[in-house]
Computed example of a mutant assay.
Amino acid sequence: MNSADDELCRASQEAEASLIYNDSYFELFEASQIIEKEVQEGKTAERFYEANDGDIEKRALDSVPTNTQRRDKWAYNTFTAWAIAVNNRRGGGRKPVTVLEDMGLDELAYFMSKFVLEVRKKDGCEYPPNSLFQIVMGIQSYIKTVSKRNVEFLQSDVFEEFRQVLDGEMKRLTRKGLGQSVKKAEAISADEEELLWRSGQLGDRNPRVLVNTLLYLNGKHFGLRSGHEQRKLKHKNSQISLKTSPEGHEYLCYREDYSKTVQGGLKHRRVTPKEIEHYTGSNPARCHVRLFKKYLSLCPPDGHDDALYLQALQSPTDKCWYSRQPLGHNTLQKIVPEM
């Protein structure tokens, strides 16, 4: 195509764009003329729907899933029933419970702590730990949705003591065996995990918490669900190795050695074992890579059983937190459910 053809092509494109622009312009012009005529004739009120405050609230509520709305209403009603009962039997200088929506943060933290210790079902029985947690989350969601207040039970410093009370009560209920009739393993939700980090059940503050955290993160990131799978992890020639990417980023690589479907026999000689990579996280305190490195650095250097998870020493030192004795698969199986 020569220069003359190029000029003709550009001119054609500009003309086409001009037509499109002009068509749009005339459409807008015609619309504005119609609206101006409606204004002059006083007909605009007939054209537009008049939304009131109730409509706005309803549309905002419609964005919340129905099951969440039911949970929140159930949680609110449960708290209200408890508050009425407390106020009816109040005596001895006990502080009255005010309306949930009107409570300040300090007052809310105080009454939520008492609530999780005293709340009961209609038949007088205690709630299972997961149900208690769902009630707490429902109350938080209700306050956010209805009262338009940004309340964060699992994150705000104001609710630190409340988180400790809730964590302790859930553990007490678990020890009593409440809610353990369900055999199917349930994944820990994001809110539940946040509570575990905030309450110190996940982290590296002591030997037991560190090994529990490593087991939880290995299960979460590498799909290891049973105590037997966790017990198969090795310390030497481990399935989990620390690597560095070409860009200089550290990551953990889990390589499956054998499983029910990959057993290493003749039929599986060409089957590629599962490999999963997990890179360093943005929060160092919760970084799987950092916690893995710290755990290895605090294990005895040699002479221990070839198992990844070791028992904590009764008297750990700055350089060694763990004995040479491995944790059994039954113990490993119970760690996450008992958090």
Rank of each mutant, 00 (worst) to 15 (best):
L108N: 04
C125H: 04
L117F: 10
E107G: 09
L166E: 07
L166S: 05
K114E: 13
V119N: 07
L166C: 10
E118M: 10
V158D: 13
E152D: 13
D167H: 14
E107A: 14
M170N: 02
G179T: 09
K114V: 07
D157T: 14
T174M: 01
V136C: 15
K121F: 05
I143N: 02
K144H: 14
G177V: 03
D157S: 14
D157K: 12
V119E: 06
Q180V: 02
M170C: 08
F133T: 00
F159A: 06
M170E: 01
F111N: 15
Q155S: 09
E160P: 00
K176I: 00
E160Q: 10
V116K: 01
V151E: 02
K121V: 09
A109R: 10
K183E: 10
S147V: 15
R163N: 08
R172M: 05
K148F: 02
G168A: 08
E126N: 08
E126R: 10
L166H: 07
K114D: 06
V182K: 08
V151M: 12
V158P: 06
K148Q: 00
V119G: 08
D123Y: 03
K122G: 13
N130M: 13
L117C: 12
S147W: 10
S181D: 01
F115Y: 15
L117Y: 05
L117N: 12
K144Y: 12
V165E: 06
E152L: 12
K144E: 15
Q164N: 01
